[in-house]
Amino acid sequence: MRLAFMGSPDFAVPALRALHAAGHDIVAVYCQPPRPAGRGQKETPCPVHRAALELGLEIRTPARLKRDIAEHEAFAALDLDAAVVAAYGLILPRAMLDAPRRGCLNIHASLLPRWRGAAPIHAAILAGDAESGVTIMRMEEGLDTGPMLLKEATPIGPETTVQALHDALAEIGARLILRALAEDPPAMPQPEQGVTYAPKLTKEDGRLDWSQGAAALERRVRALNPWPGTYFQHQGEQIRVLAARIEAGAGAPGVLLDDAALVACGDGALRLTRLQRPGRAAMDADAFLRGFALPAGTVLG
Score class of each variant (00 low, 15 high):
residue 70 A to G: 04
residue 196 T to F: 11
residue 83 A to Y: 01
residue 188 M to F: 13
residue 231 Y to D: 01
residue 150 L to H: 13
residue 234 H to N: 09
residue 290 R to C: 09
residue 150 L to C: 09
residue 57 L to M: 11
residue 204 E to P: 00
residue 131 E to W: 11
residue 215 A to Y: 08
residue 233 Q to P: 11
residue 198 A to I: 07
residue 258 D to A: 04
residue 232 F to A: 07
residue 113 P to C: 02
residue 87 A to Y: 04
residue 231 Y to F: 12
residue 207 R to E: 15
residue 98 D to V: 11
residue 198 A to F: 04
residue 256 L to R: 12
residue 260 A to Q: 15
residue 6 M to L: 06
residue 197 Y to E: 10
residue 164 A to Y: 13
residue 260 A to R: 15
residue 241 V to E: 10
residue 146 G to Q: 04
residue 79 D to A: 09
residue 201 L to M: 07
residue 102 R to F: 02
residue 282 A to P: 05
residue 244 A to C: 15
residue 147 P to V: 03
residue 269 A to I: 10
residue 127 A to L: 02
residue 186 P to I: 02
residue 261 A to V: 12
residue 168 A to S: 15
residue 207 R to C: 14
residue 88 Y to S: 01
residue 3 L to K: 01
residue 254 G to D: 14
residue 264 A to S: 12
residue 93 P to L: 06
residue 3 L to Q: 01
residue 290 R to G: 08
residue 37 A to E: 15
residue 22 A to K: 05
residue 298 T to F: 14
residue 189 P to L: 02
residue 213 G to I: 08
residue 34 P to S: 12
residue 258 D to S: 05
residue 77 A to V: 02
residue 194 G to Y: 07
residue 138 R to F: 05
residue 247 E to C: 13
residue 203 K to F: 04
residue 64 R to S: 15
residue 147 P to L: 05
residue 128 G to N: 00
residue 172 I to V: 14
residue 242 L to H: 09
residue 53 L to D: 15
residue 70 A to I: 03
residue 289 L to Y: 04
residue 18 A to T: 06
